[in-house]
Design a protein around this nucleic acid. Structure first.
Length: 369
DNA sequence: GAGTTTGAAACT
DNA sequence: CAGTTTCAAACTC
């Protein structure tokens, strides 16, 4: 019999196998890799997160890992980091103080704002390190979450597919020309990957430009501490796991989109691209990416005539979740009183979550496709 | 494959 | 925070 997992007070357990990370194999793989690197703990690991953060709209990523015994004795502190320069991220951030605690800022000269300006003619000197002579020697330092993500020569999705016999296609390669793959424009950089086999030019998102890359990471983190966190927050409801695995939409984009022309039905839309419905986080107009029609994805551009502003972004969305019975001949709606993914009735056929309002549902049932 | 459109990121 | 510019992906032809 396995001993039940012990959680330290004031902490929550993160189940990496849960639907939280369904569809985020990269994250799951990274977490798995890290846990593997840490080795089997004598006592179950404790993923300590201050309770205040649990309700944050941001995803619980990356989690802070500490031995449960330690956390129990010193619930408010973390082990002292090694003597490396700490990342200078706004410590007042709601998410980040410990999230990248050991990320090291190498002594690269900080470029002026003008130099940072991203025109190809005005590239930061720090980013113009094409010559190997310009590279500063790397100091040994402990790996961090972001390091695990960034340093993996193998895409984490491939790591994942090695451990789990699932079919996960690898990334799409980038084709960056002017950003040197050191800005969030670059999908590889944004997802914490080295560029491998990409079509990019002047790429610095590789081992040979580690200093520049670290500098770019720091810049991105300074601008947005959540820059490297997953953009889509999936439902954590265990009841949803099976549905999530089947491809139903159970998450939402943390920042939301601001689409104006595409009705959020093209891959320009980050929500659509991530296969999630637009939510109250979005500020899109003419949104049609809210319908609980399973055909929405497969039909792509086949849309139904709902010319409305994103109901979620129009301020009509309250704290309600509609559980939608999409079975044929069953257009009944049930309304959960409050947001709780755990309230999902798993017996419902084709249960699809929509973040919607009660007012919306009062309409002539345009929710049903 | 070239050109256009689009919206996020970066910047002012 | 809003407006503008830059960027690269998505899309069209």
């Amino acid at each position: 019999m396995e001993k039940p997992l012990q959680l330290c007070p004031g902490s929550v357990k993160i189940d990496f196998a849960s639907a939280s990370y369904a569809g985020k194999a990269d994250i799951a793989a990274t977490a798995a890799a890290l846990l593997h690197a840490l080795g089997p703990p004598r006592t179950p690991p404790c993923y300590q997160l201050p309770l205040a953060k649990v309700n944050s709209s941001l995803p619980l990523w990356p989690p802070v890992i500490c031995p449960s015994t330690f956390a129990q004795k010193r619930p408010m502190s973390l082990p002292s980091p090694p003597p490396a320069k700490k990342l200078q991220v706004q410590q007042s951030s709601s998410m980040l103080p410990q999230d990248f605690p050991k990320l090291e800022v190498l002594p690269v000269e900080k470029p002026t704002k003008l130099q940072v300006r991203r025109s190809p003619q005005h590239v930061s000197p720090a980013l113009k390190q094409d010559s190997p002579k310009m590279e500063r020697p790397l100091l040994p330092r402990p790996a961090t979450f972001i390091d695990v993500m960034l340093s993996s020569q193998k895409p984490s999705s491939e790591m994942w597919s090695e451990t789990k016999d699932v079919t996960l296609t690898r990334k799409t390669n980038c084709s960056c020309k002017y950003s040197k793959c050191l800005k969030l424009y670059c999908e590889c950089f944004e997802k914490g990957r080295y560029c491998i086999g990409c079509n990019c030019t002047n790429c610095c998102n590789n081992v040979n430009h580690e200093n520049a890359r670290q500098d770019a990471i720091n810049v991105a983190l300074e601008r947005n501490p959540a820059a490297f966190m997953p953009k889509v927050l999936n439902s954590t409801a265990h009841n949803c796991e099976s549905k999530a695995a089947e491809g139903d939409i159970v998450g939402k984009h943390t920042k939301g989109c601001k689409c104006k022309r595409t009705e959020c039905l093209k891959k320009y839309c980050e929500c659509f691209k991530a296969s999630v419905f637009c939510s109250e986080n979005c500020r899109c107009t003419g949104c049609k990416n809210y319908k609980s029609n399973a055909d929405r994805i497969s039909q792509k551009n086949t849309v139904h005539a709902h010319h409305v502003q994103n109901p979620a972004s129009s301020g009509m969305v309250g704290q309600s979740v509609i559980i939608f019975h999409a079975a044929e001949n069953d257009s009944s709606l049930s309304l959960a009183a409050s947001v709780s993914d755990h309230s999902i009735n798993n017996n419902t056929s084709h249960v699809i979550l929509l973040q919607h309002t009660f007012q919306i549902c009062h309409g002539p049932c345009f929710l049903i496709g």
